[in-house]
């Protein structure tokens, strides 16, 4: 456990950069609202390992009504109050942490694949699982 997956961050950065570049040309990216882009930025920070994807998929099996990227994006944007535009990375992170903490404080949690996680964490996992 001492050693994180060493190449994960590098890969993540490369992936984010690549998706940013490629995304510029992609239709959905062009038309995505700022909140979508903010949420996708946030989801990009979640380690996209097979296990995280599995947790995300397991969550969606229990919450099939959320099993769409737009739905999850809308829910996350609402819960994280992703307005106004121009939220910095730090602010985005702060809000996500605060929301996760309040989820726990409100017992807004589920046990998925054994993990006792907040609703927001699970939605981010689910979104990560839905990303191409």
């Amino acid at each position: 456990m001492d050693k994180p997956l060493l190449d994960r961050r590098a890969l993540l950065k490369m992936g984010l950069a690549a998706s940013g570049v490629l995304g510029v040309g992609a239709t959905w990216w062009h038309h995505a609202s700022m909140e979508n882009r903010l949420v996708l930025r946030l989801a990009g920070w979640v380690a996209r390992s097979e296990d995280v994807t599995t947790i995300g998929q397991a969550y969606l099996e229990r919450q099939p009504e959320e099993a769409h990227r737009d739905t999850l994006t809308r829910l996350l944007a609402r819960d994280l109050s992703l307005f106004p535009y121009g939220v910095s990375d730090d602010e985005l992170r702060q809000r996500s942490r605060a929301k996760i903490a309040s989820d726990f404080a409100d017992a807004n949690t589920l046990t998925v694949q054994g993990w006792i996680l907040s609703r927001t964490e699970l939605r981010l996992c689910a979104l990560a699982a839905l990303l191409p």
Binding site: T54, S96, L124
Partner: peptide, 20 residues
Amino acid sequence: PPPPAVRHVANMLRDLDTLG
């Protein structure tokens, strides 16, 4: 040592919880 599932989820939590 923890199984891979624990490591990967721990990494995910690291990203979320250390943000900001």
